[in-house]
Design a protein around this nucleic acid. Structure first.
Lengths: 115, 115
DNA sequence: TTGACATATATAGACTATCTATATATCCTT
DNA sequence: AAGGATATATAGATAGTCTATATATGTCAA
């Protein structure tokens, strides 16, 4: 079965959900954390993240709430929902399927085929 | 350094160039070979491939020639250029960088950071 | 206290890769 | 003769990300 076509370009949502699986986070924090953890391989832009968070919220994969920490300004925190967890696990499987297929082609080896 | 943003969605060109690195092929053959080698993980569509081959040709990453094999109809074969080989090798490095970064986030581990 | 910069969220418009749909033509098999 | 696989091609739609811009707050140094 072919993977979702949007996987290639759609891995950003998966990464965000993964971060939220470990802890609730606000937008700006996600950008920094992702940049840091990937040594800037992911240079996620604010203009990419915020609309994406909104769409994840609409799909009920995440839920938002506002919170003020200490004397800082109000931040919008996101938490992953059960629906989001299920989605994340499905996407992780797709990701593994996809990357192993790519590596297979790149490595020059072919899958063992049953005739 | 961030990888080319189009990597996520742009791995198709890399896969095609990899196939052409091993042997000259014509379009339809590429579709079948890619489907077969990936067990249909890549369900590359004709409407995706042909425009892509044209753009690769324009960028001089591949070169095209016509050939008739046996009593078959004329087919348009593509061969990789030196420029294409260089591009392929660069893309493979980006691919490895990108996937290891994704796996790192998914695995929950962080990169060792030097301060 | 003023200015500069980092923090924090948001939207509009553009770009690009892929998809679907459609078109055309040839070859092979029944 | 007809149908299906082979083979190439283009137009239009969709979707994810980017750039650019906007706004506002907190912090720090001059």
């Amino acid at each position: 079965m072919p993977v979702d076509k949007s996987l290639l370009t759609g891995s950003t949502a998966m990464l965000i959900l993964k971060l939220l699986e470990d802890a609730d986070m606000y937008g700006y924090q996600i950008i920094e954390d992702l940049n840091r953890k990937s040594k800037n391989v992911f240079a996620l832009k604010a203009g990419t993240l915020y609309p994406l968070l909104h769409s994840l919220e609409q799909k009920e994969l995440v839920a938002a709430y506002e919170k003020t920490a200490g004397n800082a300004r109000v931040r919008k925190y996101y938490s992953i929902t059960n629906k989001g967890r299920n989605y994340l696990h499905a996407k992780k499987e797709e990701w593994q399927l996809y990357t192993s297929a790519v590596n297979n082609v790149l490595g020059g080896a072919t899958f063992a085929t049953v005739r």
